[in-house]
Simulated scan of single mutants.
Amino acid sequence: MKKKIIPLLVAGTVLIAGCNQQKTAGTTSTSTATPIEKADAVAVVNGQYISKSALAELEKDIAERSHGQTFPKEKLVEELVQRELLVQDALQKNLDKSPEVIAQLDVARRSILSQAALQDFLKANPVTDTDVKAEYESKVASEKGTEYKARHILVKTEAEAKKIIAQLNKGADFAKLANKYSLDAKESQNGGDLGWFVSTQMVAPFSEALVKLEKGQYTKTPVKTQFGWHIILKEDSRVQTPPPLEAVKEQLMPYLQRQKVQNMLEARRKQAKVEILVPLTEEKPKPETSAPAVTEPAAPPAQPATTGESGEKAAPAGAVKETNPATPAEPKK
């Protein structure tokens, strides 16, 4: 059966794969790794064994890169065989002795060693359950805000919003009006329901109007945002309940690990003798100091800028810089 090169990791990681194969092939004259026994191999290529551990590493790498997707073992073994063929070809051509490859191998080596140092540090200084619990109590459990449950009707103009408010004042059903008029409820037919949310998830004018409402009350005047005009109904509010420790433990662990690593690196940086040998900021070119000879009469003085009613000088046309404020989050739909 004819084998085809599968586009897994060959194109992007052939160099590192070559390094790995030099460690796992075992019987080449350039390898310094322990020779692989036949019982510990998945294949042999021109007398060079490919270890079972290499297959396991490839399976793990692909699972991480493809978010759990798996491939048949036959294809993975063929991938390793093709990598070994490339490595053998490179070694036969003495590519491992070229300055470019040596430089790249050194970069890969340093990267692998730095990761190994981090893993060794975290193994010796693991994040404990006590660390996680302390972080949870100080950062998660202590944060108690207010959640709101609301509906809204969003229309394009203030006049439309006022007509809808007039209907609400006469006892019309809010959800039915939302399904009929709201720009974001006509298709969903959800009655303008926004569910539960914290005030910071909404744009400022919306949140400010919502917080002032009593339970069951709607805004008597339209609320303008960059999305249009809103009528807001506050259905309920409650004290925000923090998630249980077990629900956020997996999120806290990486954060605490990074914190430990950062503290360790800062301490070692202070103890190390470091001299930066390159400028860290670009120097601006110096302006020319020689003035050109004056051959023409001096120009008449510029006219003063026109002063507006406020007494401030008006900027000339085209000089006004338009601001671009950050766009707040759109209300949930």
Rank of each mutant, 00 (worst) to 15 (best):
I6N: 10
P7E: 03
L8E: 02
T13Q: 11
T13E: 15
I16V: 14
C19S: 15
Q21M: 14
G26A: 10
T28M: 11
S29V: 14
T30H: 10
P35D: 00
I36E: 01
I36T: 01
A41G: 05
V44E: 10
V45S: 04
N46I: 03
G47W: 02
I50A: 04
A56W: 03
E57I: 13
E59M: 06
E59V: 07
I62M: 01
E64C: 11
R65L: 14
H67N: 05
T70K: 08
F71Q: 02
P72I: 04
E74G: 00
E79C: 14
E79Y: 14
V81S: 07
V81T: 02
V81K: 07
V81A: 09
Q82N: 15
E84M: 12
Q88V: 11
A90G: 13
K93R: 15
N94C: 04
N94I: 02
L95P: 05
D96G: 14
D96N: 15
V101R: 01
I102G: 13
Q104P: 13
L105C: 12
V107C: 00
S111Q: 08
A117P: 06
L118Q: 13
Q119F: 14
D120S: 06
D120W: 03
L122S: 08
L122V: 15
K123T: 15
V127H: 00
T128E: 03
D129N: 12
T130A: 12
D131H: 07
K133I: 14
A134F: 04
E135N: 06
Y136L: 10
S138T: 13
V140Q: 15
A141M: 13
E143I: 13
K144M: 12
G145V: 10
T146W: 15
Y148W: 04
H152G: 05
I153H: 12
I153R: 10
V155D: 07
V155W: 01
T157P: 06
E158K: 00
I165G: 01
Q167R: 06
L168R: 01
K170V: 12
D173N: 01
D173V: 02
A175N: 03
L177M: 03
A178L: 12
D184A: 13
A185T: 05
E187D: 00
E187P: 06
S188Y: 10
N190I: 04
N190K: 09
G191A: 05
D193W: 05
V198W: 05
V198Q: 08
F206C: 07
S207Y: 02
E208Q: 00
A209Q: 05
L210C: 04
K212H: 08
K215D: 14
T219F: 00
K220W: 03
F227R: 10
G228H: 02
I232F: 02
I232E: 00
L233S: 06
L233K: 04
K234N: 00
E235R: 14
E235H: 10
Q240V: 03
P243A: 05
E250V: 15
M253Q: 09
M253V: 13
P254A: 04
N263W: 09
Q271R: 02
I276P: 07
T281M: 10
E282N: 11
E282F: 13
E283L: 15
E283I: 13
P287N: 04
P287C: 02
T289S: 09
A293D: 12
T295E: 11
A298L: 05
Q303V: 13
Q303E: 12
Q303H: 10
G308S: 11
A314Q: 03
A315S: 08
A317F: 10
G318K: 05
T323Q: 15
A329K: 12
K332L: 07
K332G: 06
K333F: 07
